[in-house]
Design a protein around this nucleic acid. Structure first.
Length: 932
RNA sequence: GGGCGGAUAGCUCAGUUGGGAGAGCGCUGCCCUUACAAGGCAGAGGUCACAGGUUCGAUCCCUGUUCCGCCUACCA
């Protein structure tokens, strides 16, 4: 029966969807707790449910899929746990935009209806990225798909919250936190991005209260906040100012006087004027300085970062000033304040000043330090074991260079603000008894509410609830029925939700059923490897380690592979606004999924960002096509008997390719074990294209094409055996192509997905065949160079001569005589150089192998001669260099003997080549018409 | 300010017990040779950023300099 024939080019689109469905239908990706094989587990970094696949996802998930498919083929019980993240702020924004387009708002809908809207949205659009991951070939166990807001995961969140609270590791308090005045919520420290920007440094006069002639100059970048100053600090050892400590200054634009305090921590004597204003309600350092000196906090900004009239009045700001700046945003108020100071002659100088501005990582709005009651995780006790786990190697970061980064951050970690003033997310499981907290729960819709805490709530919210920091929460797994203090049953649940990363931190065990001790948890936890980008090392990885250790007593994963960031071809970060985004979906459409995956793998070098250019993808598309065509060739020649038998009985070509295949299997396996996806990819590429296709298939042709050949049966056997094996070796990288091709060639089993991954076989190794190949390659390449020089047509039969330095190489050439004639397309005479004709032969040499080509017809002898001369010159230079080294007594006495021997051998070969080239030149000259 | 990484062919990057500088893409020439023009064959192209040091010998190890990234930080 004739084998199936393939189309001339590989068309990925036609095969990808078909095979993916086949794999899913057969349940190949499903992990089971019943299997006895060693588990291998990866939990996916859950993409935002609002997300759609970008090239960073493509990289991240391609690498995970390579690992998972590799381990699955190795026979491990593999689980790749998929899922998505509810992405609090991002998702809420998406749905709010929809509402806005409909002319409504979440406030109009109310909390419950709004949350229902988000769920509706998720049901309709939240599966986008999951479908896209499937297109990428991701072999996740989709039966186990999880979402951070699922019931089970939410249960885990409440459990963790309650337990941490019971241990005193979660607390509520009024602190300065980072506040985004656009998202109207608190952010954790790491959600603030610092960006250098040009600002101004204002020097302002503060007059002494009892001696207005004496002025202190205070430097600030934020003059508008002076309205909330409660002190001025100088260094206690500063001779310029220390006598002023304890005195009062008049605070400009207000009716207040404030003290001068000495503070060695806050004040840097070298900077500015050496005198600094203290605004405890609007600056982190000042907050701490305020604590040290017992200063009051006067908030003067509202939740939208506008100058708040209530706060300004409370700060005794002059009425005229209030009228000038009230309800202006900070950046609008600043010039007004500057002008007012100028008018009154209180502005000394203004100079340009570079500073790092904190911005919201989601919306890039400048964040404000903002005083409000929030929930925090006391992090030091959790960080300590997480540091230990990495220090003692229970968790390995790869590349290792990130370890110090991690440790440094963990050792200096600050308490984690986990409450967010949004609706979409895990609402904090804390309830307040209304009767016991009658004084601390404020429920007015009053616009100009005076307290700072009231301002923490979105202004637009009609049902304003403010829970003061001294309210008494009941933290419980479920809503309490009766107040333990008063027996009352009227409760208010804390309106805040948790930071999305709080639930993500539980991902490796919450997805496996924790807090239940499920079979899944017992089988698959701790997980094996986490694959992630550096950008969420602190957001996610560090927190998973802390929570995993705290609640399971085990590390959540053993290896953390940190991959690079994908940039555009110019090295710019990809962003929609720059328009330099490479869309992986479009890439898959045009070049095929396998080409994209292989490209990303090949560029995943450790410690370096990936600059992705489309030409690279095209190159690997061509690679896929090359394999496709190799398959076509094989299918054309496969019909006929196959003779299996010991490798020793097979041809030189067969033994050589099996030896190289074995070498490649070993190399690829080692690379994968070390997470060197780039190396593995290039080893595969090199072997398949430049050894298997370029040489082996050519070497195999004579026996395949000759019906009489006694070799044919054995060659067909090797051809198939090697090809089927390399398909399996390649499968984790190019799953679709390999399945498609594998199904057309003879094989055992239903799918390549579940076939064993190749392992090295020492019987395949043949040093002898590899040594022979080196001789063959030298000879053939040299002949080809000569043919190109002489401008011979590729098909032209040529008379050739061959020789070698050393009997061993010469014997190998003799043994390979038929191959030499086939590949160099000519008749080859292997005899000592001395016996070659003395005229009309172009003599060339390389690495001790010599080749002669009969010169016939019209030939541009001049250019051939030039080429020879150049080569000869290089030869002499190299020989001189090496002889120079050998001439130094220090070298010959100190260098290892192998090195010296190697040098001598090289000189010997160079000498031989030199003689050959010289005689070749002489001959060429003799053939050329004499000049003049 | 602190920390980390990088600088190798036109471009993107490999390159460990220190000993003849590599790949892919691009470029040049020849070729539609019955698997593949998304291809074949051949070729050109490098003071391995700079300056010192260690060594018989340095792209590799050490020191310093310059430039470029990234992370991190409260210099008002």
């Amino acid at each position: 029966m004739a084998s199936r024939q393939l189309e001339k080019t590989y068309e990925p689109k036609q095969v990808e969807e078909r095979w993916y469905r086949f794999w899913i239908d057969r349940g190949y990706f499903h992990a089971s707790t019943d299997r006895s094989q060693t588990p291998y587990t990866i939990v996916i970094p859950p993409p935002n449910v609002t997300g759609s696949l970008h090239v960073g996802h493509a990289l991240n998930n391609s690498l995970q899929d390579i690992l998972i498919r590799w381990r699955r083929m190795q026979g491990r019980n593999t689980l790749w746990m998929p899922g998505t993240d509810h992405a609090g702020i991002a998702t809420q924004n998406v749905v709010e935009r929809q509402l806005m387009a409909e002319g409504t708002s979440r406030e109009t809908l109310g909390r419950d209806a709004f949350i229902q809207r988000v769920w509706d949205w998720k049901a309709q659009s939240g599966g986008t990225i999951i479908q896209q991951l499937k297109r990428l070939g991701a072999s996740c166990d989709w039966d186990r798909l999880r979402f951070t807001m699922d019931e089970g995961l939410s249960l885990a969140v409440r459990e963790v919250f309650v337990r941490l609270h019971e241990e005193g590791l979660i607390y509520r308090g009024e602190r300065l936190i980072n506040w985004c005045p656009r998202c109207l919520t608190a952010l954790s420290d790491i959600e603030v991005e610092h960006e250098e920007s040009a600002g101004k440094l204002y020097h302002i006069y503060y007059r002494l209260a009892d001696d207005p002639q004496t002025k202190l100059i205070v430097a600030t970048t934020r003059p508008e906040t002076l309205l909330g100053d409660t002190a001025v600090a100088v260094h206690p050892d500063d001779p310029r100012y220390k006598h002023l400590i304890g005195k009062q200054v008049r605070l400009p634009l207000t009716q207040r006087t404030i003290p001068i305090v000495g503070d060695p921590i806050l004040v840097d004597r070298e900077f500015g004027t050496g005198a600094v204003k203290i605004t405890p309600a609007h600056d982190f350092n000042d907050f701490e300085a305020g604590e040290r000196h017992g200063l009051p906090r006067l908030p003067i900004l509202d939740h939208q970062a506008r100058l708040d009239p209530v706060g300004l009045r409370a700060a005794a700001v002059e009425q005229a000033v209030i009228e000038a700046v009230e309800l202006l945003r900070v950046n609008q108020a600043r010039p007004k304040i500057e002008a007012l100071l100028q008018e009154r002659g209180l502005l000394a100088t203004v100079e340009a000043h570079k500073m790092a501005l904190g911005k919201c990582y989601r919306c890039k709005t400048v964040v404000e330090p903002y005083l409000s009651p929030q929930w925090f995780v006391m992090i030091k006790p959790l960080a300590e074991p997480a540091i230990q786990a990495v220090e003692d190697g229970r968790i390995r970061l790869i590349p290792e260079a990130w370890t110090n980064n991690y440790l440094g951050w963990m050792r200096d970690i600050k308490d984690w603000c986990i409450s967010r003033q949004i609706w979409w997310g895990h609402q904090i499981p804390a309830w307040y008894c209304r009767s016991c907290n009658a004084d601390t729960i404020l429920e007015t819709a009053h616009e100009g509410m005076a307290t700072t805490e009231a301002q923490a709530l979105p202004k637009a919210s009609r049902q304003r609830v403010t829970i003061l920091s001294n309210a008494k929460p009941l933290v419980m797994r479920t809503q309490p029925t009766n107040c333990p203090a008063c027996g009352g049953s009227n409760f208010l649940q804390d309106p805040d939700v948790l930071d999305t990363w709080f639930s993500s931190a539980l991902w490796p065990f919450s997805t496996l059923g924790w807090p239940e001790q499920t079979p899944e948890l017992k089988t698959f936890y701790p997980t094996s490897t986490l694959v992630t980008g550096l950008d969420i090392l602190f957001f996610w990885v560090a927190r998973m380690i802390m929570m995993g250790l705290k609640f399971t007593g085990q590390v959540p994963f053993r290896d953390v592979y940190i991959h690079a960031l994908v940039r555009d071809a110019e090295g710019q970060k990809m962003s929609k606004s720059k328009g330099n985004v490479i869309d992986p979906l479009s890439v898959m459409d045009r070049y095929g999924t396998d080409a994209l995956r292989f490209t990303l793998a090949s560029m995943a070098s450790p410690g370096r960002d990936i600059k992705l250019a489309e030409e690279r993808i095209e190159g690997y598309r061509n690679f896929a096509n090359k394999i496709w065509n190799a398959a076509r060739f094989i299918l054309m020649h496969i019909d006929g008997p196959r003779a299996s038998g010991p490798l020793a009985d097979r041809s030189f070509a067969d033994r050589w390719i099996m030896s190289r295949l074995n070498h490649t299997i070993r190399a690829v396996s080692t690379s994968l074990e070390q997470y060197r996806f780039d190396q593995a990819a290039s080893q595969l590429y090199q072997f398949i294209w430049h050894e298997y296709c370029d040489w082996y298939l050519e070497l195999a042709k004579p026996s395949l094409q000759d019906k009489e050949s006694p070799e044919a049966g054995r060659t067909r056997q090797t051809l198939l055996e090697s090809f089927e094996t390399l398909l399996r070796l390649l499968h984790p990288f190019m799953p679709f192509l390999t399945e498609e091709v594998w199904q057309t060639v003879p094989h055992e089993g239903d799918s390549i997905v579940t076939q064993p991954y190749p392992s090295p076989n020492p019987d395949w190794e043949s040093k002898d065949a590899e040594a022979s190949f080196a001789c063959l390659e030298q000879f053939v390449t040299t002949v080809r160079t000569g043919r190109a020089l002489l401008n011979y047509q590729p098909g032209k039969k040529v008379t050739l001569y061959g020789a070698a330095v050393g009997g061993e190489h010469f014997a190998r050439l003799r043994h390979l005589h038929a191959y030499l004639e086939h590949l160099s397309r000519g008749t080859v005479q292997l005899t000592a150089i001395e016996t070659w004709p003395t005229g009309k032969v172009l003599r060339l040499a390389s690495e001790g192998i010599s080749a002669g080509l009969a010169v016939e017809g019209e030939v541009d002898l001049e250019s051939v001669l030039q080429k020879l001369q150049k080569q000869h010159q290089e030869n002499r230079q190299e020989a001189k260099r090496i002889e120079g080294k050998l001439g130094h007594a220090e070298f010959t006495s100190k260098a290892p003997s192998e090195v010296i021997h190697e040098h001598r051998e090289r000189v010997r070969i160079l000498e031989q080549e030199s003689r050959l080239l010289a005689s070749s030149e002489t001959q060429l000259r003799a053939m050329m018409p004499a000049k003049d």
